[in-house]
Design a protein around this nucleic acid. Structure first.
Length: 175
DNA sequence: TATAAGATCGCCT
DNA sequence: GGCGATCTTATAC
């Protein structure tokens, strides 16, 4: 087990997203270490990806995605839910991986079965925009042992994305 | 300055 | 299975 380094995130989101499946997301909240196994992710692959906020261009909101990899891209959706993404690729190329679901570890009793719930349980807010996920107390560790069984499907909730709504960029682990 | 819409969830039937 | 909550952001006047 080793903490994921910036070089891990310095690749295309389409490659990083499936590799995050089975990894462990860790954050220390109120001096308590909380950990969960990532079981669902989605890739947002660049400014040409109509499902990505970056397709609107570089704005104050999407600034983090255009920055260097390994940082948290957080935004609020529907006025009530925070979404947690990790920026990938290189600076100037806006790609990111959305963390959609996880399974709590270490007797942690929470429901992490959706992106809004996951962010809420990990205490993610807009204040966490630009947080460095390769340093500090919020990070991901790689599990070298198990090879998760991964299923690939189109992404969720992006009907506005035209042809891109069919793109197979959602990755989830099956039992 | 004002307006519209969204990478969702939970409660209702 | 359908709908309402609720607020940031982008875009338009």
């Amino acid at each position: 087990m080793a903490r994921l380094r910036r070089s891990f995130f310095s690749r295309g989101a389409q490659l990083v997203a499936p590799e995050l499946i089975g990894c462990t997301l860790v954050r220390t909240i109120n001096s308590v270490r909380q950990a969960a196994r990532i079981i669902e992710t989605e890739a947002y692959v660049g400014p040409h990806d109509l499902a990505s906020h970056a397709s609107k261009g570089r704005t104050k909101r999407t600034e983090t995605m255009f920055g260097p990899p390994g940082y948290a891209y957080v935004y609020l959706i529907y006025g009530m839910y925070h979404m947690l993404n990790i920026v990938t690729s290189v600076e100037g190329d806006p790609q990111a991986v959305l963390l959609r679901a996880a399974l709590p570890l270490d007797n942690w009793s929470v429901d992490l079965s959706g992106p809004g719930k996951l962010a809420r349980a990990f205490g993610v807010t807009l204040d966490d925009r630009g947080l460095d996920m390769t340093a500090g107390d919020f990070y991901v560790i790689k599990s070298l042992r198990d090879k998760p069984n991964i299923v690939i499907t189109p992404r969720i909730g992006i009907d506005y994305a035209g042809e891109w709504k069919h793109a197979p960029l959602r990755f989830l682990e099956t039992p």
